[in-house]
Design a protein around this nucleic acid. Sequence first.
DNA 1: GTATATGCAAAGCATTTGCATTAAA
DNA 2: TTTAATGCAAATGCTTTGCATATAC
Lengths: 141, 141
Amino acid sequence: MTGPTLLERLRERGWRVTSQRRAVAEALAGEHVHLTADEVHRRARDVLPEVSLATVYNTLNELVAMGEVAEVRHTPGPSRYDPNLGAGPHHHLLCTTCGTLFDVDPAAVATPTLSGDDRRQFRVDAVDVLFRGTCAACAAG
Amino acid sequence: MTGPTLLERLRERGWRVTSQRRAVAEALAGEHVHLTADEVHRRARDVLPEVSLATVYNTLNELVAMGEVAEVRHTPGPSRYDPNLGAGPHHHLLCTTCGTLFDVDPAAVATPTLSGDDRRQFRVDAVDVLFRGTCAACAAG
DNA sequence: GTATATGCAAAGCATTTGCATTAAA
DNA sequence: TTTAATGCAAATGCTTTGCATATAC
């Protein structure tokens, strides 16, 4: 079940594996999802103090272009980066009170499909679902 | 079926109805959906040449806060404003080739629901679905 | 050795804000 | 008359870019 790591896949695609890119990949691999570019930068700097924010942005953009990472703009402010691809569709819960963005257990959502005319006029490659509401912590007060 | 107009609803909520706000409301009421703030500004200026971009932003933000208009950030670049609320959930199709954002016939999508643990831990207020793919024009071209 | 990635600093957009002026109520 | 909205211009925040240097291959 465990395929090649992110860095292995990137090497196969002809990437030069630099210490900076390794640091960014490690920052994303942690248990924290939905990091901003700035948060990735901070984490990468813990490992490699001289990595620049520009390089973090460049690397994140390349990962997004390759489909390894999703850029998510559901929240106000900066984009967030979601490395949880490969595990099928990645839906989200946004708590409109505290602003936290949660991952949804994919088994908990029946991915919607298009029907009617729209189905014939559009070829769908991916579906993104965002549930807006209130998380347990905020509901509890 | 035809309820009060946008401006009437705003007046009911204590808005001062200025010529600028009227111009913004008219710009949004046109048949073009998903305008950027800049596009709203251009259209509003056709009617009221001295309206400023800052006022357009202020007005759009107020309309979003009131739930009259949805701010949509599915595309790269600036936010787009979708006045098609009140007609229930408003799902979208994004053509990843040409970048156009289309509205979806609400009848063509079964709005997804949460099940399992997530249902118990999160109170859902709204659901947003984005289909990514290729539109008919791009598929043909 | 050569092509590519990096860091830095500057530029680019999109959006917000402060404040004096204007206008709705 | 009072309170809120406006326009302007400056500030902010996020992201990208140009270019000289460093480094993976």
